[in-house]
């Protein structure tokens, strides 16, 4: 990760806690399975339905969310003691909006076609419940370094689900992955057809549902959580 230096700086301020202590490692790995933002906390589902018809936008979305969530966590955690609690939401939104605008401008400048494909959904990261949720639940009450790790972890946990969903939707809906034809032409000649249901957001719902089903049948900790 490019955030390595920031992590080290924050870690040096806390001499007693090593950089990748068990607790800190847990902050990164937890959101991947036991506390996944989509399949366990069921946050951010709307964007998971909207941007997953193809791998490319899903991948860009993943990177954007990881960036926004980790840096907003870091910034809010740094200033958490100076935010008056009555206006903390406004401050959080302002910080998120700043980061999202940066991402949006960068995408427009360097990958214009992807930016057009994602259209409003980059802007809607501002309202992505995962970002706000992590700020409220974690960054407001924790030191900067763990907050940053928590942001990265949750971003990756979110992105992993996004990519899995997009993988199935693009492969079966269009026969491609990242725009490259995967299912060979002779399959189509034999009578294979792209599955139209995969292009509808209902398919993302099924796939997320099946992921939750599979995850819960393997992970005993999650049984009877809700």
């Amino acid at each position: 990760m490019s955030t390595e230096t920031a992590v080290k700086a924050a870690a040096s301020a806390e001499p007693k806690e090593p950089l990748f202590s068990k607790k800190n490692r847990k902050l990164i790995t937890d959101p991947f399975n036991d506390n996944n933002p989509i399949t366990v906390q069921v946050l951010g589902v709307c964007s998971a339905l909207a941007v997953t018809t193809q791998m490319k936008p899903a991948f860009v979305m993943t990177l954007s969310v990881i960036f926004v969530i980790s840096f907003s966590n870091l910034i809010i955690s740094l200033i958490r003691n100076t935010i008056p609690s009555r206006i903390r939401m406004i401050v959080q939104i302002t910080v998120i909006a700043l980061l999202v605008t940066m991402v949006d401008q960068v995408l427009k400048a360097f990958v214009y076609d992807v930016s057009r494909e994602l259209s409003v959904y980059i802007g809607l990261i501002i309202t992505n419940c995962i970002v706000m949720g992590r700020l409220e639940a974690f960054a407001m009450g924790n030191k900067p370094m763990p907050s940053l790790l928590d942001g990265i972890g949750n971003g990756i946990g979110y992105g992993a689900i996004l990519l899995v969903v997009a993988f199935f939707r693009e492969l079966f809906g269009a026969g491609t992955l990242f725009g490259v034809q995967i299912i060979p032409q002779f399959m189509y000649d034999l009578g294979y057809e792209n599955n139209g249901i995969m292009l509808t957001s209902a398919a993302a719902m099924f796939i997320i549902g099946v992921l939750i089903w599979v995850q819960r049948s393997f992970n005993e900790k999650l049984v009877d959580v809700s």
Partner: peptide, 10 residues
């Protein structure tokens, strides 16, 4: 309904 939405022309 699955075939209807996935492969409507069939």
């Amino acid at each position: 309904v699955f075939i209807f939405f996935a492969y409507p022309t069939y």
